[in-house]
Amino acid sequence: MKIIGLIVAVLTGALLIYGTVDFPGWADPASPASTHLSPHFIEKTMEETSVPNIVTAVLADYRSYDTMFETTVIFSGGVACFILLRIFRRKEPSDRLYRHVLTGATIRVKEGGKIPLDSDDFERIDTLWTPHDLIIKTVCRLLIPFIQLFGLYVIAHGHHSPGGGFQGGVILGASIMLLAISQDLRTAVQRMREKVDALLSPTGVFIYAGTGALCLLLGLNFMDYSALASVLYVDPVTARSHGILIVEIGVGIAVMATIIWIYNNLSSAGKYDEGL
């Protein structure tokens, strides 16, 4: 079986390499891509959208359908993870551990035992409990705000430097994941509840699609942000730049919520109870 797999892989690789022979040369000025599209983008982007970073303009303006459906793909990835993994039946683990906050004593509740529900004196701890790790907790607590600020910076400066909604969203999601890893999953879920995740993730897609639809309502093509000029009280070129920013924020929100959602489902095996 292994040998067949190897043969298939090598054959496919050889075919792909054979296919590259037909490619135009590296940075060939006569290749189709650099005769029609690229010169237009390179020459016209600044005057049409006033965005210095051409990649951002291409992604969020010229080819915004593509990016909109990419965002939708990410959202549906989150939904698929949710449907596959989430367990709704109230299936308790056989033992649960609680710690008495005032004394620090740990008690173990057997299956069917009485659980101190909603009492402030007890806090739930993981079954695979790890002792209080002071260093990791404290350092992560200090670093998380800066990571979040960096994520917001990446979203806001997609026009001028590499980055944009997708990367910033991943960084924002990673900050919450860091909280879940350094403390425990329940702390992170308390900050970012499941409902919030599940609402924010389609909200991001909706912001994206809604911006496009607003342009349609204002009498221009779908996703032609210069229509927003009358709403934002700016000239059409600046409106395109601002439209890109709004769209990026939508992408950022969707990606952040989806990343956290997938992580929560994956690490707790759908129980939202105890995680990595």
Binding site: R141, L142, I144, P145, Q148, L149, L152, Y153, L179, R191
Partner: peptide, 15 residues
Amino acid sequence: SCGIVAYLSCDLLFP
């Protein structure tokens, strides 16, 4: 952005 971060995480930086 600073407002958002401060609202979300000020109890992390200054518990």
